[in-house]
Design a protein around this nucleic acid. Structure first.
Length: 431
RNA sequence: UCCGGCGUAGCUCAAUCGGCAGAGCGGGUGGCUGUUAACCACUAGGUCGUAGGUUCAAGUCCUACCGCCGGAGCCA
């Protein structure tokens, strides 16, 4: 609309008139003063209405306003040290656009379940606002990183005819009379992308029907998955650490205000610079043994195992060469130790766990075909995938980064559910 | 699926050994010229998750069920 100023650029209007279009976040009353806290989607500002400065209708209108009513306020922008943003508005005119019904979310404490029932409104609160702005920055940084390095976006399908890895539980849906599944990874399709475009990535939602009820799980989450032709495990790890350093440092630079709102200790994030420590699975197991953690050699790491390992380092740690028995069929075996896979997991610091999983893919036709058969997967469903080894196979590698876990880590949150606008969990389909 | 925890006002919670169902916030009314989750006074607001049972008496004890939470497993 015409003549609207956004709060994040209010400094340009110091000692001048401006009009802000937004919503009433909160109001405090004095006898002849009204303090309107107005938010407009770019920030919040205090608008002061003094009975001596405005006509009676405007002052009376203040007392009509309810929390989250939409309004337009006009007045002089003045610097004030008491204001969090450094500026406040001395109101000369106030217009009510739409009066809000009694708003369910007060500024006091609420329970998570109640807030999630009102997620469509909760998004307006300052914490959620800050988290989703960090999410936006992370996604923008991910795309910019790959775009700037010659990667081509080759998005993978969401409907798939079969389970990618044949392990996790998938959501099943009806597809014109036959079964289809919602994808759990764009990984296999991305390999086709890499062999066509050299460097490719996809970014989209993925789905897991596991009945997980933990702070780290969603049934629908977003993943960015690069894949590179003529790349081995070492090159994959080089890419992953350069990528993470870029994303974290960019968020620190561009979203400092949001991180401050979240009271994030950014000193922990400033350490996220190359090189990251690289340890083998066997070395990671040795750490657990030294810390007297009960652990069965050959198993995958649990949540607490990952925390113990990551706490040994001040930045993300890359754990490579897990036993191939506990990894997906498409992982290439280590030629120097056939029991290990050429894979890597990146564990975030501070106990935030696995945020990246990836590795070098099996590029030999016969070996891959045997692995598919050994995993009891339907060969005919993977004929196209085997074609990638039949027609000009090359060493290639890639990884997947979970967006929500990354947001959780960078924001310092205790649960992934606040890192996506409308989370989908086992007991959460609405709103 | 297994293990553990929780269901009381619109919201967040309290209620001692089984003995009159309460507070703060939010709503309403009024007051206050610098408030920062403002404050002060007054006020309305209840199927104590559901169904049984024990008891003179149940929010409280017992049984079943429902709902939710997060830990394991699985993973990003």
């Amino acid at each position: 609309m015409k003549n609207t100023t956004y709060i994040d650029s209010i400094a340009e209007f110091k000692d001048k008139q401006a009009t802000i279009s937004g919503w009433l976040y909160n109001m405090r009353k004095g006898g002849k003063l009204r303090f309107l806290i107005v938010r407009d989607g770019t920030g919040t500002i205090q608008a002061v209405v003094s009975k001596t400065d405005v006509n009676e209708e405007v002052f009376a209108l203040c007392d009509e306003l309810t929390q989250e009513s939409s309004i337009r306020v006009t007045g002089k922008v003045v610097a004030d040290e008491r204001a969090p943003s450094g500026f406040e508005m001395q109101v000369s005119h106030l217009e009510l656009v739409s009066k809000a019904d009694e708003y369910p979310i007060s500024l006091k404490e609420h329970g998570t379940d109640f807030l999630m029932d009102n997620r469509h409104l909760w998004l307006r609160s300052s914490r959620q606002f800050a988290i989703l702005r960090v999410r936006h920055e992370i996604i923008a940084a991910c795309r910019a990183f790959f775009d700037d390095r010659g990667f081509t976006l080759v998005d993978a399908p969401i409907f798939t005819p079969n389970a990618c890895e044949g392990t996790t539980t998938l959501f099943e849906t009806e597809y014109f009379g036959s079964k289809a599944y919602l994808t759990q990874s764009g990984q296999l399709y991305q390999e086709a992308g890499a062999l066509a475009f050299g460097k490719a990535y996809c970014f989209g939602p993925t789905f897991r029907a596991e009945k997980s009820k933990t702070r780290r799980h969603l049934t629908e989450f977003w993943m960015i998955e690069p894949e590179v032709a003529f790349c081995d495990l070492d090159g994959d790890m080089d890419l992953a650490e350069e990528f993470l350093e870029y994303v974290v440092q960019r968020v620190l630079k561009n979203k400092a205000r949001e991180l401050a709102t979240l009271e994030r200790d950014v000193t922990k994030l400033q350490n996220v610079k190359r090189p990251f420590p690289r340890i083998s699975y066997d070395e990671a197991v040795a750490i657990l043994k030294k810390e007297n953690v009960e652990f069965q050699d050959g198993n995958d790491f649990g949540g607490t195992d990952e925390t113990v390992i990551s706490e040994k380092f001040d930045r993300p740690v890359m754990v490579h060469r897990y036993p191939s028995a506990i990894k997906a069929f498409y992982m290439k075996n280590d030629p120097t130790d056939f029991s290990k896979a050429l894979c890597v997991d990146v564990l975030a610091p501070e106990g935030y766990g696995e945020i990246i999983g990836g590795g070098q893919r099996e590029d030999d036709y016969d070996t891959l075909k045997n692995k598919i058969l050994h995993h009891n997967l339907p060969l005919e469903a993977f004929e196209w995938y085997l074609d990638l080894r039949r027609y000009g196979s090359v060493p290639h590698a890639g990884f997947g980064l979970g967006i929500e876990r990354t947001v959780t880590w960078l924001c310092g949150l205790s649960h992934v559910r606040e890192t996506i606008p409308f989370p989908r969990m086992m007991h959460r389909l609405r709103p």
